[in-house]
Structures are given as C-alpha cells and as structure tokens.
C-alpha cells in the first residue's frame, strides 16, 4: 500500500510491504529528506543558540503590537536585587539561580543574564554577532523548508508517508500505538517500513506548524517585511505576539528534538543514523 517511488533502488526494496521481513535492508529515506535533515540539524543548533543570545538582550515577552520595559511582560527572566535568578510566567515565579537569570560562566564569574553561556552563540554577550549567525542561518532554514516542501509535494512524500490514513486516526489505533510506545515496543518487520501514526502526527505538526511557524513569526519581526507583508502582523496579532510565538515554537521544536533523539537511541541508533545518511534501513526483526 505504500509503494516506494524511488524505483532506482528497486533492488533493495521489497516488492510490497507484505513480503518485507525483519532483518531485510530497505530503502527508507529519499535524498531530499536526508540532505534537509542534516542541513536542518546544523541550522537548528545555530539558530537556537544564537536565538537564546538575542533573547538575552531583552529577556521579556509580550502580547500585542508593542511591548517594552514599561509594559506588562507575560514572561520574564532576570535576577532579583538579592541576586537570585528567576523565571516569571504570569504571576508564577520560579527560582532558577544557577541556570537562568544568574549563573556562573566557565571562568567562575557570576553573571546576571537570562540564558547561560553554555546555551548561547557566541558564548559571551554579543548581540551583533548573534544576530549575524541567526539572520544568516534563518535563510538556510527558510530556503531549506521551501525546497523540501516543494520536493515533497512533487514526489508525494507528504501524502504517501506523512499524512496519516483515516484508519490510523481511529482513537483505538492511536491508543494502541501510545501503549506500544509507552512499553518501548516499536514496530518490527514489515510494520517498521512505514512511519507509525504517532511518528506521522509529530512529523506533520513539525513540518506544517512548528517549522513554518518559526519562519513566519521570524519574518513578522522584520520592520521591512512588515511593509511588504502586513498581513503577517494580523495573522500573529502584532510584532510582540510574533516574538512570543517565535519563542514558544522554538520551545516546541526543542521538545520535538529531545523526544526524537530519545527515540533514535531506543530504536537502535546505528541503524537509524545510517538510514538518515545512506537512506538504507534494516527492518527490525520480529523476534529479538
């Protein structure tokens, strides 16, 4: 039912799913997917770390068109007069001394900044350089997304491999997959040829919500692009809302990557990483 369109690798792919068995090597990831995956891996690390440095320049988030120090911030990271670090969200305040707001750098110096130097690019406070990293790799990220989405529409990767089928969306099926995942029982043999429904849903939300959301909220923060695409401001509810959403979407992506890395480790890191380089994936055996 999921015939592979990459006919050039026909020798390594089973005639149909039903015949695929555990231990067999199948063609799993197209070249466009693999190249984009690794480009993004590099770009995302750079964008995240330089983004945290940019956040450090003004560690407050607002809703609406405007927002500055005299206005109400819904999220704030800072240091108190008693020199403890804090994260404040709405009316909740958390003591984050050592990690956020106040922390010790690699030279043993205490610093009052939002994100610590191990998480930022560059390591010590430099808004100008962080912006150069961020606004250069934003192009890599955005153009990569555009190329991948075009390619995936064209070769039907999205419809074929990522969009869940109606049958998979039955609550019973989803519930079954959740239980299997919770027990760390991953699909074996022929079933492992395809993404399972939880994978499909998380990849889909990353591909059509989080990543495009990052790019569009980023564009919304540009005063020059506001002049060209004023509808972006309406879409996100103003520049400061877009900045808040940019931060939240980034948090969503970090969460996704953490779960993704955990799953790679649990499912067999050598096989998984190799498949994202060569495209070839060894189907897990039905019985271990």
């Amino acid at each position: 039912m999921h015939a592979d369109s990459s006919s050039s690798i026909a020798t390594t792919r089973p005639a149909c799913d039903a015949k695929a068995t555990g231990g067999q090597v199948v063609f799993r990831h197209r070249l466009s997917t693999r190249l984009w995956h690794w480009t993004n891996a590099v770009a995302c690390v750079i964008l995240l770390m330089s983004g945290l440095m940019i956040f450090n320049a003004h560690p407050r988030l607002y809703w609406g068109a405007y927002g500055a120090n005299p206005d109400h911030a819904w999220l704030q990271i800072g240091a108190t007069e008693a020199n403890t670090g804090y994260l404040r969200i709405g009316s909740l305040t958390f003591d984050t001394t050592g990690v956020l707001g106040r922390w010790t750098d690699s030279n043993g110096q205490l610093r009052n900044r939002a994100f610590p130097s191990w998480a930022t690019l560059p390591k010590s406070y430099n808004l100008a350089q962080a912006r150069r990293w961020h606004l250069t790799f934003a192009w890599v990220f955005a153009l990569g997304l555009a190329a991948y989405l075009l390619r995936s529409l064209f070769n039907r990767h999205l419809r074929r491999d990522i969009l869940p089928m109606a049958e998979e969306m039955r609550p019973a099926h989803i519930w079954h997959d959740i239980r299997q995942h919770a027990r760390l029982k991953f699909p074996k043999g022929a079933a492992a040829r395809r993404y399972n429904v939880l994978q499909k849903l998380s990849y889909l939300s990353v591909l059509i919500v989080l990543i495009p959301g990052m790019v569009l909220t980023g564009m919304t923060m540009s005063p020059a692009l506001n002049a060209v695409f004023p509808w972006l401001l309406d879409l996100f509810g103003g520049r400061q809302s877009a900045r808040s959403l940019h931060f939240l979407f980034a948090g969503g992506l970090v969460l996704f990557v953490l779960v993704h890395l955990l799953m790679v480790v649990l499912a067999g890191p050598v096989n998984e990483i190799r498949s994202m380089i060569t495209g070839r994936y060894r189907l897990p055996k039905e019985k271990d």
């Binding site: 606004l135 250069t136 790799f137 192009w139 020059a224 692009l225 002049a227």
Partner: peptide, 22 residues
C-alpha cells in the same frame, strides 16, 4: 555571516522598494 545582511538587503530592495510601513 555576512550573507544574511546581503540577502536581506537585496531581497527587500527587490520585493519591497516602496512598500509603506504599517
């Protein structure tokens, strides 16, 4: 790292030379 600035300047001059700020 100079690429972002060059691309932004070139693109903005190409697509939005006379666009008005909101």
């Amino acid at each position: 790292l100079g690429t972002g600035e060059r691309l932004a300047y070139g693109t903005h001059r190409l697509i939005g030379r006379n666009a008005l700020a909101p």
